[in-house]
Design a protein around this nucleic acid. Structure first.
Lengths: 374, 374
DNA sequence: CATTAGCACTCTCACTTAGCGAGTGCTAAC
DNA sequence: GTTAGCACTCGCTAAGTGAGAGTGCTAATG
């Protein structure tokens, strides 16, 4: 009954999606013919639409009123119909420029990535900070704040730092602090958490037992590493709520029912963004696979996510320092644009991080757009 | 015509506000009598309500349907009718415990304060990071990341740190880095921005001209200080959007008009929270005055804030390291609770920061609730 | 003179009905 | 396979209706 997926039907599917993404209203056969000057009559388009519906790519919210794409429709579009675009050179330049302005300030990168993602893809964005698979200690610095308080700066591989205050006994000189920090730095050099714990248990350096103060410091580092390990998993940056809010999905133009649902939707979205719940399972997945992941609506089991699509990509230095970033928005989303944005920013961030890792920096400005495999 | 503000009328105003805060619906004369067992008839209450209306403390959204407080009504309530409460000891303990858990991690304090404020006051919260009136350099540490890249950790008075990467020439040894950092640390010790700029211009240390590398470092510090000066002004942390969203104001229980407005309201709120616009003028004001500031609805000129109240307090160490924190929510807000929450957390944060500043730490747990002057 | 009972009046809310218009599905012709 | 024609469906809007809530006013009361 349904018939084959002819060339024309694919084009119609593509047009329906395009149109729906643009207007956010169900698209009618006649509109399509008029707007795109199709060389066939509305009736023909209707027939094809009916076929596409039976194939599962389109639906009908109401008997009257046009068609809208299903998740499967979007999926087919993303996989087969969409032409793979890149951001325009001008946009790429603008984005690079923004990153250039915070070069060096690596604590700003993730936030900036979120902000740019959101603005460019016109949707909400999420990102995790880059994270080593294995947290590795690098060095410890102690700076006296006053007689009984010092600031410890714990540095890990990959430019991750953690600050911590700790009380000290009044007698200690700056030289004292420096020496202790030096001992601990050397002792724990390049240690992973487990290694650090072992070393803490032994509590000797070159056969000499650690002083009490040094032991305190080692303990502090271990605790900081544990805390980091636990916390970093959950920390998800996000931005662009406002961007997403201005999508028509959240404007109750029609009835009151719609409005109620819009608010409810919004609340859910907020919860997702805030807690990263709903993203949870996706992130390890994105970390595992390279390339850009597209999860459309209900494909992802979570019920709360039924109306949203997520586009994620891993970024960073393979095996050393990786994170995930992406875009989240209504299923009715400009996939080509969102995907190329995510791809571009992921590659940009990867290059930035690579500079941190490799002595011989690759050109930190991807000339066109180094596509990851999809 | 309006008549005097008798004792009873004040009580009625108070009850109306209490009731309206609770239920979010206009309150009727009869409800009041029934619920609070008033020894007068609804008619009497009505008369008093009419008087209160003429005094400008109450309004009528519609001819039928009860009364709701005006901004002036809330103001009178806050100033004269409200009993000054404190958070319950149990709550205080719980909050202290949470801060205790991140003791030492001063980069977490502001975020935690926001989170706790939001949860406790059931509203959105805002806070600025503590900030010295004069940023003062403390020390610089350099850690090699690899042959051509180093991580600089710039420490300022008050535990403010800034990390920055910088490229280095391949030849440099760790010892090299340490020495250079030491020179710069000593040279710039305790310098303010202007002083640092002067020193950078002179570019000598104890009469000896700085090496090129050292000059680079000094320049970096100066740039970092400038960046900080500019940025810190605007950086506003916030939390608790979800908390606020669950206020009935944002639930379109009634008509569609309401819903539309709810979304619009929400969008505005988001903008305010995100950019801090609308709070801008308030923050310096709060910094200037001690105590807890309450700004109700339209009292603050900004039109976008007409439906919101803001409760702000300064925290920190007077003249050394201060910030602002507070709560923002619908004018229909539990003022006593919000105010005591803000007051308590501000004093808690102040004590935490005082520990950083004074060698002899005051007890970091305010036993009851050190009230700031209002 | 403050208080109160009684009552008419107002205005919102929720529900129903009717009409319109958009868009489809089907059928029959090409 | 394509198209014109047309009946049919269904959501949306506007208008109308009844109920209920709550007030404002008036007149009676201590």
């Amino acid at each position: 009954m349904s018939g084959p997926l002819t060339e024309r039907r694919q084009m119609i599917l593509k047009l329906v999606i395009q149109e729906f993404v643009d207007t956010a209203t169900p698209v009618a056969s006649e509109t399509l013919v008029r707007k795109y000057r199709l060389p066939v009559s509305p009736a023909t388009v209707r027939n094809d639409m009916a076929a596409l519906e039976e194939l599962g790519f389109l639906t009908h919210p109401h008997t009257s009123g046009g068609r809208i794409p299903t998740d499967a429709g979007y999926r087919f579009f993303v996989e087969n119909l969409m032409e793979r675009t890149s951001l325009s050179p001008a946009e790429q330049r603008m984005i690079r420029h923004q990153f250039y302005q915070v070069r060096g300030e690596l604590d700003q990168w993730v936030q900036l990535a979120c902000a740019v993602l959101a603005r460019t893809a016109h949707n909400a964005s999420v990102a995790t900070a880059p994270r080593a698979e294995q947290l590795r200690f690098k060095s410890l610095e102690l700076i006296a704040i006053h007689e009984t308080m010092a600031l410890a700066v714990i540095v890990f591989h990959g430019g991750i730092i953690k600050q911590q205050t700790l009380p000290i006994e009044p007698g200690r000189t700056p030289e004292d602090l420096r020496r202790a920090a030096g001992v601990v730095s050397d002792l724990l050099a390049d240690a992973t958490l487990t290694r650090a714990e072992e070393l803490a248990a032994v509590a000797t350096f070159n056969g000499v037992p650690l002083s009490e103060f040094e032991r305190t410091l080692v303990d502090m580092v271990v605790r900081a590493m544990i805390a980091f390990e636990e916390q970093a998993q959950e920390q998800i940056y996000s931005d662009g709520l406002l961007e997403m809010l201005s999508q028509p999905e959240f404007m109750p133009a029609s009835g009151r029912d719609d409005a109620e649902r819009a608010i409810e939707r919004l609340r859910r979205t907020l919860e997702i963004l805030k807690s990263g719940r709903g993203l949870g399972p996706l992130i390890p997945q994105a970390l595992a696979s390279g390339g850009v992941q597209v999860i459309i609506g209900g494909e992802h089991g979570e019920d709360a996510m039924r109306d949203y699509s997520v586009i994620l990509a891993r970024y960073g230095v393979e095996g050393a320092l990786v994170g995930v970033l992406g875009v989240i928005g209504p299923t009715r989303m400009a996939y080509p644009r969102s995907i190329s944005t995510v791809r571009y920013i992921a590659s940009l961030m990867s290059n930035l991080l690579a500079d941190l890792y490799y002595a011989n920096p690759r050109p930190s400005e991807p000339d066109v757009d180094t596509p990851a495999t999809s």
